[in-house]
C-alpha cells in the first residue's frame, strides 16, 4: 500500500456520508499510503439561483443576500474543518481548501490543479423527502454522469 498514492483529495461537506469518507481517509488511507491529504469543500455556485422569481428587491438587496450567504457558508465550513481537526490527529498535516462552483467541475479541476492521484467522496445517499432533519447547504446531489467523464484520477467512494 505504501506510496501507492501521493496526494489524496478528500471532498467533504460535513454530511453523514462525507463523514464516512473523512474516517476512511484519516484513519486508514493516509496512514497506509503516507499520502498528503487535501480537504476540499465546495460551495455550490447555484446559491445565486436560489432567489427564484424574486424581482421586487433592489440589486443591493440581492448583493447583500449573496454576501451573507458567502459569509455564513464560510463560517459553517470553518466549523466543519474544526470538527475534523478535533477528531483526527492526522488531519493537522492536511491542507484545507474551499472553492465555489459546480460541485463535480470544481472537484475535478482542483484535483487536476493540485496533481492529486485519488479523489475520495462519501457514498451516494437517497435524500429523504419527508424528514424534519435539515442538512447544510443545498440538497442537490452530484451526478455520476457529470462527474465520471471529468475525472483526472481514480475515484474512491467510502463505504
Amino acid at each position: 500500500m505504501e506510496n501507492m498514492f501521493k496526494h489524496i483529495l478528500l471532498c467533504t461537506h460535513g454530511s453523514d456520508g462525507a463523514r464516512k469518507a473523512e474516517a476512511l481517509v484519516f484513519t486508514q488511507l493516509a496512514e497506509a499510503t503516507g499520502a498528503k491529504v487535501t480537504v476540499l469543500t465546495v460551495l455550490d455556485k447555484d446559491w445565486r439561483l436560489m432567489t427564484g422569481d424574486d424581482w421586487l428587491n433592489s440589486s443591493k438587496t440581492h448583493a447583500d443576500f449573496l454576501d451573507h450567504v458567502e459569509e455564513q457558508v464560510s463560517e459553517e465550513i470553518a466549523d466543519d474543518w474544526n470538527r475534523i481537526l478535533s477528531i483526527y490527529a492526522k488531519a493537522r498535516s492536511a491542507d484545507f481548501v474551499q472553492h465555489t462552483g459546480g460541485i463535480a467541475e470544481t472537484i475535478t479541476t482542483v484535483a487536476r490543479q493540485l496533481g492529486c492521484d485519488l479523489i475520495v467522496i462519501g457514498p451516494y445517499r437517497k435524500t429523504k423527502r419527508l424528514t424534519l432533519k435539515m442538512e447544510k447547504g443545498l440538497r442537490d446531489r452530484m451526478k455520476n454522469e457529470v462527474l465520471h467523464p471529468l475525472l483526472p484520477c481514480p475515484l474512491m467512494i467510502a463505504p
Binding site: S59, A63, L66, D67, V73, A78, W81, F96
Partner: peptide, 15 residues
C-alpha cells in the same frame, strides 16, 4: 481555519 468563500462575481458593488 477560516477563509472567506466568494461567489466569484468581481468586486464592485458588494453589499
Amino acid at each position: 481555519k477560516k477563509k472567506k468563500v466568494v461567489i466569484d462575481t468581481g468586486d464592485a458593488g458588494k453589499g
